[in-house]
Design a protein around this nucleic acid. Structure first.
Length: 313
DNA sequence: GGTAGACCTGGACGC
DNA sequence: GCGTCCAGGTCTACC
């Protein structure tokens, strides 16, 4: 059994960092409320699944216990995945300066996946579907395709659309997921491009939009997942939350002009936090969830964690 | 540029 | 148990 250690930035808090974004509820992530530890299978460069349990010691250091001995050559790859998930390398001091309340609440590092590929697939499974169904799709993909870990592009490409639809109940998303996997393997989609420093927000947004199955909402969401926060990912949940909070009447789905005006109002409201609009929006939304269900690091995955959806809030 | 309909699933609801 | 309706974001065809 191998144990890895990582030194996080000052004031880093593992429960807050993990339980900061809905993807922490999606398999193969599992947050253990009793021990305040993250259980998460990762992959070595060779594709082998390594079950990892991450805890934070009293001195702040993160300890990742692997369920088996991992060759030293793979330590760096596992650590890099953990660094990405917890955004250990992001400098968010400007965000803290822009939002004093969020700083006090230690809301900054929004949880994400070990790879951008997984984040894109998870985003596709979150579109046009209720949250419990998103959880189910990810659980079935981990079970049937990834054999305990999140599926790789190779595994998804091999699995194929028909089986993905049938076994993992992803519906028409099967075509989008398998096409993404095959494009990544063929090299026609280079996900590393999106994580290269220096990309502008417009470049990233348009780049994500060019992926089949990624619309405006998904592209906005993916921008924050690569560390660019100046775009909102507006969906029905945004409408619900904003109208409730600001005592506005929510336009009907058929009222395109009303929805457009509402989007403008939302954009102006969060514009004061530029270039951190998404963080400010998510802070408000997350505070709202926690006001209803208690601290996120105490949520039960099968009850509280399964309840986010506009129609249930 | 704007709009309508199709895509697909799970859950709620009425019978 | 069965049928119907609904929520949800994106794509495509059409105006």
């Amino acid at each position: 059994m191998t144990t890895l250690t990582l030194r996080p930035p000052p004031r880093f808090n593992l429960p807050r960092a993990v339980c900061s974004y809905g993807y922490f509820v999606l398999p193969p992530n599992r947050w253990d409320v009793a021990t305040q530890a993250l259980h998460r299978p990762l992959r070595t460069a060779g594709g082998r699944v390594v079950k990892v349990v991450v805890r934070q010691r009293a001195d702040g250091v993160l300890v990742a216990a692997c369920h088996r001995t991992v060759p030293r050559a793979d330590h760096g790859a596992l650590k890099n995945q953990l660094r990405r998930m917890l955004r250990l390398d992001e400098d968010l001091s400007a965000w803290h300066a822009a939002h004093a309340v969020a700083k006090t609440q230690r809301f900054d590092r929004m949880y994400r996946s070990p790879t951008l590929f997984e984040d894109v697939v998870k985003t596709i499974t979150s579109c046009n579907v209720t949250w419990p169904n998103t959880i189910s799709m990810n659980r079935l993909m981990v079970e049937h395709v990834g054999h305990g870990g999140f599926p790789t592009p190779e595994q998804l490409a091999d699995f194929g659309e028909a089986r993905l639809k049938e076994r993992c109940r992803v519906g028409y998303r099967a075509q989008r997921i398998v096409r993404l996997a095959r494009d990544v393997l063929a090299g026609s989609v280079d996900l590393a491009w999106f994580e290269t420093p220096g990309r502008t927000s417009d470049e990233l947004f348009e780049g994500f939009r060019s992926l089949y199955g990624i619309g405006p909402y998904a592209a906005g969401n993916l921008c924050h997942l690569v560390g660019v926060y100046d775009r909102l990912a507006i969906d029905t949940e945004t409408y619900r939350h904003f109208c409730n909070t600001h005592k506005l009447t929510r336009p009907k789905a058929s009222d395109a002009a009303g929805l457009k005006r509402l989007e403008k109002t939302i954009s102006v409201h969060y514009g004061r936090y530029a270039p951190f609009q998404f963080l400010a929006y998510w802070f408000d939304l997350w505070q709202d969830y926690q006001a209803r269900c208690g601290p996120a690091w105490r949520w039960d995955r099968d009850t509280d964690g399964a309840s986010f959806t506009a129609s249930k809030m």
